[in-house]
Amino acid sequence: MIATTLQRQGVTLEPARPVRQPVMPHHGVTLDLQNLGKSFGANPVLRGIDLKVPAGQFLAVVGRSGCGKSTLLRLLVGLDRPSIGQLLISGRPATAGVARIMFQEPRLLPWARVLANVEVGLTPVGGAAERRAQALQLLAQVGLADRARDWPAVLSGGQRQRVALARALASEPRLLALDEPLGALDALTRIEMQDLLAAIWQQQRFTAVLVTHDVAEALALADRVIVIEGGRIALDLDVPLARPRQRGSAELAALEGRILDQLLAPGRGDHR
């Protein structure tokens, strides 16, 4: 629905145009990972990741369980420090507080109403009424304006995750990291959330880094997919397909095949 609204506003891309030249000006940051590595004790999880992400790109990260995807995200948003290498965000060393991250769990405050939970994401400026109105608008964006007065406990899993999304978007982040945010949802809710995410990203053009186990999901959303294996980038694949993407199209199937081949290739993978 939001996608169609955007279409009417002329936000959609012309089909022939490469995806990485968006219509709207870039709001996102650029990421520059230089030989970025992270070890826990003697266990090297990431062994030198080199990656440049242009502003406003939607990057998906896939890889086997335990390959260090979450670790990479935590480095990106400043929750952990790298053991080696460096991370530049828009050319400057990373500082905490620029990025937002969404986890598989919504991490809502159970003791705060839905609206107050969204307000957590707002920068603490402006009057209470103004913040309230802003939060309500964000809730409307994820289709939950009518649940503003509810406790998180009475929402469904998908609804909670949408509240978490509204909260993450509240400060208009220039980098949004998503750690399997849809992993706990059923297939149908998942597709709905993917569409919502795509629509919001097309509108705001933050830089997005999505970790997912679902290759189809990565291909439905991302401009580019990287596969992490043995602590390094094993595959770096552009997805030059126009949006909205046709689920199950031949091009997507071909790309999915390449990624799955890489993931399932024997003799590679588990580095531990």
């Binding site: 929750l79 507080g97 957590v120």
Partner: peptide, 12 residues
């Protein structure tokens, strides 16, 4: 700890 981490991310 997950909520505490959330609070930290949101600059509380």
């Amino acid at each position: 700890p997950q909520l505490v981490e959330m609070g930290r991310i949101y600059g509380m």
